[in-house]
Amino acid sequence: MNNTIKVGMADANVCKPPDVITTLGLGSCVGIVLYDPIMKIAGLVHVMLPDSTKIINNSNKYKFADTGIDKLIQDMEDIGALKRNLVAKIAGGAQMFSFSNNLEMMRIGDRNVEATKEKLKQLGIPILAEDTGANYGRTIEFSPETGLLTIKSFGRDLKVL
């Protein structure tokens, strides 16, 4: 029996075949899937904010793109993944409401995506696929067996990256 491992907002988890890992209803948050294709180990973190250093209360590491990715790598290494094997697929970072008067709030999705890419670049983890930005929510599911990321959105066709 394969299980679907669910990851909530500001949370993360790891996954091995035949299980799949999912996060539901990504809005401006970003879902980052890291994958070791050789060991077939996947991890998924659902980050809400770009930068932990700009926030006073930053005890939950999974909330931020920078610390969330670091912590997820540790979690994956704990079950046998190798950092040098890792590749990434990312999704989310939408702008759900078209705020006309609040620039900072409007760009949070973009900033989450930028911070994610920056962090992955620093770590030398290549991004194999992404579905980011725009103005709609996404539910994503990753299978460490196939290495494929499935993206469901309301009123749109299923995407497989």
């Binding site: 539901l24 809005g27 939950n60 939408a94 709030m105 709609y136 929510g137 309301f154």
Partner: peptide, 27 residues
């Protein structure tokens, strides 16, 4: 109050917007 901003989408995606605002100050 601002003008209304509307979105038709998954509840999780819509609620992420206020959640992120709270995320800046706590968990």
């Amino acid at each position: 109050s601002s003008i209304p901003y509307m979105a038709i989408d998954m509840a999780g995606a819509i609620l992420s917007v206020p959640a992120i605002e709270f995320g800046k100050i706590g968990d």
